[in-house]
Design a protein around this nucleic acid. Structure first.
Length: 193
DNA sequence: GCTCGGATCTAC
DNA sequence: TAGATCCGAGCA
């Protein structure tokens, strides 16, 4: 059980996002049960990035993104689902990495139950209560080393579901992993279902 | 104040 | 392909 060092989170989101692939995320439920998964898909959101919630300065919602890296940023999307981000960078910078999908262990009945940011939060029982919390076992949500991922096994693409900043290739996922949220053909055009 | 649309997902 | 369903952000 090796835990990630503080310095890890102080890097820019575009550097942290690919390094989070293969990392294990753990969540302890109220009943004491621990749910775990390997991160297989992430997206980086940077301060000067029009798709980033922090791009227009501090607001009540995005305030956690301006804290020092290493805490959760959770927000409600489409009135229904929550999305979990890892805040990165120095205090005041306004950036984060969206955790989009986990590979669940083989004993899980539905191993795609965390394949997508909304499903992931539902599966791990993450909501506004985790917003702003430090990743720590004390907070029932923590991160630790998982499996090594080679650079050659990392694929990039445009980010999903945004209308601005689509030219940035800031989505990172493990190549040929069947637990990412969406798979595309080699031209990154047609979705493979 | 009020409107608009969103880092989604599922079912029709 | 539309509907669920909330609320922050910008003022159309």
């Amino acid at each position: 059980m090796t835990f990630i060092s503080k310095d890890f989170y102080l890097q820019d989101a575009i550097h942290v996002a690919p390094q989070l692939l293969g990392i294990k995320i753990n969540r302890e439920l109220k009943n004491g049960k621990v749910i775990s998964g390997i991160i297989v898909e992430t997206e980086a959101y940077m301060p000067d990035d029009p798709a980033c919630h922090a791009s227009r300065g501090v607001t009540k919602r995005n305030a956690p993104m301006f804290e020092e890296g290493g805490i959760c940023y959770v927000y409600l999307i489409y009135g229904i689902y929550y999305c979990l981000n890892v805040v990165t960078g120095k205090k005041g910078s306004g950036q984060a990495v969206l955790i989009r999908a986990l590979e669940l262990p083989s004993h899980e009945t539905n191993r795609r139950a965390a394949a997508g940011p909304g499903k992931l939060c539902r599966h791990l029982a993450i909501n506004k209560e985790q917003n702003g919390l430090e990743f720590s076992k004390l907070n029932q949500i923590w991160i630790e080393e998982g499996i090594p991922i080679l650079p050659a096994d990392i694929q990039t693409s445009s980010r999903i579901g945004i209308s601005k900043g689509i030219e940035m290739q800031w989505r990172f996922y493990i190549k040929n992993n069947s637990f990412v949220s969406k798979q595309y053909d080699t031209n990154n055009t047609k979705e493979i279902k």
